[in-house]
């Protein structure tokens, strides 16, 4: 779920732009300069993946993939998500212009958190990685949902009801994202384990060339 224009107070939209630009700049610095074109191509893959709809009873939900993006791209994930959101407003008509910064924070911060979680605790055993992938998937959408509710709540008391219901609507998404995260990471651990290391990021503290 993306926040559309005209909902958030102007201070929050501008603050969202400022914070997400700073984070995107950090994310660029943490990505190998050579790898930026490759990251762009990978962003396209994540974008296409997020268009996949999973049936849920009579309706269907589409995946947010914040957790999985973080797990696979590490610190570069914020940049990838920002680009994805811009493309989405260019191409698929979703997502707003003024709410872009807030949306990037809503998806990008959980991705960074999940990326850190996954890379720190993943170990070497495929089962453990799959379980952790599930945790990252579920945590990614949980944190996104909380961020959405928190952003909506900045509008004042009148927005609390909507924020609560938006939070509740994310429960099935969280379950589905958890399962898909676990299975996808399990698949990658068997098929191409090198994808589970963030290939595009430089190590923290490495000199910037």
């Amino acid at each position: 779920m993306h926040i559309s224009d005209g909902v958030l107070p102007i201070s929050v939209t501008i603050g969202g732009y400022a914070a997400s630009s700073a984070l995107a700049a950090w994310s660029v610095r943490r990505t190998e300069a050579e790898a930026l074109p490759k990251l762009a191509v990978m962003t396209a893959a994540f974008f296409v993946a997020s268009l996949v709809h999973v049936p849920f009873g009579p309706t269907s939900v589409h995946l947010l993939l914040a957790g999985l993006t973080g797990a696979l791209l590490g610190a570069s994930a914020f940049l990838a998500i920002g680009l994805g959101l811009i493309l989405q407003s260019l191409l698929f008509q979703f997502g707003g212009l003024t709410a872009l910064g807030a949306n990037a924070l809503m998806m990008g911060l959980p991705a960074l958190a999940c990326g850190w979680l996954f890379q720190t605790f993943k170990g070497a055993a495929p089962t453990r990685q799959a379980v952790l992938g599930g945790v990252a998937g579920a945590a990614g959408s949980t944190l996104s949902a909380i961020a959405l509710a928190a952003l909506l709540a900045t509008g004042g008391e009148d927005f609390f009801g909507v924020a609560k219901i938006a939070l509740a609507a994310h429960v099935p998404v969280i379950l589905i994202e958890g399962a898909v995260g676990a299975f996808t990471v399990g698949f990658l651990a068997r098929v191409k384990p090198e994808l589970l290391k963030p290939a595009f990021t430089r190590r923290a503290g490495a000199p910037h060339g």
Partner: peptide, 20 residues
């Protein structure tokens, strides 16, 4: 279904990564 979708995504990522 979720497992099939996850394998689908995994395959998409593998192919895209090699493509980069």
């Amino acid at each position: 279904t979720l497992k099939a979708v996850a394998n689908f995504l995994g395959m998409l990522f593998v192919r895209s990564f090699e493509r980069t």
